[in-house]
Simulated scan of single mutants.
Amino acid sequence: MRLALIIAVLLTLVAAPARATDPAYIVIDVGRGVVLNHHDANQLWPPASITKLMTAYLTFKAMQAGQLRPTSPVVVTANAVAEPPSKMGYRSGTIVTVDNALKMLIVRSANDIAVALGETVAGSEANFVAMMNQEARRLGMNATRFANPNGLPASGQVTTARDLAVLGRAVWMDFPQYREYFRISAIRAGRKILRSHNTLLERYRGTNGMKTGFICASGFNVVATATRRGRTLMVVVLGETSAADRAETAAGLLNGGFRGLLSGVIGQKLATFQTQPAPGSAVNLRKEICETKRARKAKLGRSALDPKFVLMEPVRVFTGKADPLPPKGQAGRPAVNIPLPRLRPPYPDSAALSNGITVQ
């Protein structure tokens, strides 16, 4: 029976022709903070939009400290407007709330909003990048260097699958009150419905979301968590060749973790696992991902993904309706107890995580 399960898990992973660089991945038990399995988890890699997990983390930290609250204003500056897509595309001077900015950041992966949030938290993009790197060092992300708040290509901006697992776990453990943001599968901005690139949100039961990323140099990346029978696992996959393969690989690894079929470094603490990067430069998959015509991967056996299910209606986001801007030179307004929107209908397998908050 165990052999059959192992074969079943392997068949859920994607069969692929030989390639110059195989995807890197790591699977961890979030609650225990231990590594279940990995491949090249210390290989340097461009983080792409998974960078926005750190942007969200520092925003959550500012909210928890009382520097910001959900209704605090985020001004879209000319510097933010200049960022390339994906973006919300607002004009310079547009104001959104921190709450709406976080939804746009996480679901739309909006590069302009990432910069605007960074400027709101730290006063300038440069100050925010310095905060990102300071926080990365504090968390033990020893191989990671950030150069911007959104993950767009930048010299020296690198990370590893292991470091992203450290960051993802910190987001999950340090700010449980904000986990619901990552479960939103779509937002509605005016007449537009903008859907998350995280296929797992509507194709993997028990998923809690997190963040995807893509640039040519990095390939298709994802940090994803899922909870089943009270146990939460996290997978980081870097360098897949398509969004579909990224989701399939992540789901297969999660299945293996939940079924107890992953082995190799079981029980080793994430905090002490591969704390230094592998020697050499960061992976650059531009030629392979964006400049080479590839045949689609053939799938073996049954998909690790579930049939698509309907999670929720898109969550509305809007401009304006923020607190008044504080006087020039004054810090953000004091925090008050404003509830975070909760998804509706209830998310599968999430009853134990509900904190009784309601949808706006």
Rank of each mutant, 00 (worst) to 15 (best):
A271L: 02
K269D: 13
M234Q: 14
I266E: 14
A243N: 09
T249G: 04
V235R: 11
L233T: 08
V265G: 02
R231S: 08
D245K: 10
V236A: 01
G256V: 10
T272R: 06
Q268L: 14
V265Q: 08
R259G: 03
D245L: 01
P279W: 13
A278Q: 07
D245E: 15
A247L: 10
T241W: 08
I266F: 07
T241E: 15
G260L: 10
V235T: 15
V265R: 13
L254H: 03
D245W: 11
T249P: 02
I266S: 14
D245R: 14
Q276G: 07
T232M: 08
L261C: 01
E248H: 05
T232N: 03
A278W: 04
G239T: 06
L253R: 02
A244F: 11
Q268F: 13
A251W: 08
N255D: 15
T272W: 00
R231G: 06
N255P: 00
G256W: 14
G239I: 05
A251Q: 09
A271F: 00
R246T: 07
L253V: 11
T275H: 01
A271N: 06
V265I: 05
L261I: 05
S263C: 00
T272L: 01
G256A: 09
L254S: 08
G267C: 11
D245G: 01
R228D: 05
L254Y: 05
G256T: 11
Q276N: 14
G239P: 04
V237H: 01
G267P: 06
G239E: 08
A278L: 11
K269F: 10
M234E: 15
R246C: 09
G230M: 10
A243Q: 13
Q268R: 15
V236H: 02
Q274I: 00
L253C: 03
R228E: 12
L261A: 03
Q268S: 12
G252M: 06
T249A: 10
A250H: 12
A250V: 08
F273H: 11
G230Q: 07
L233A: 06
R228W: 08
I266Q: 15
R228C: 06
L253G: 04
V237P: 00
A247F: 07
F273G: 04
R259S: 12
F273C: 06
G257C: 04
R229Y: 06
A251L: 07
V236T: 04
V237C: 03
K269V: 04
R259N: 10
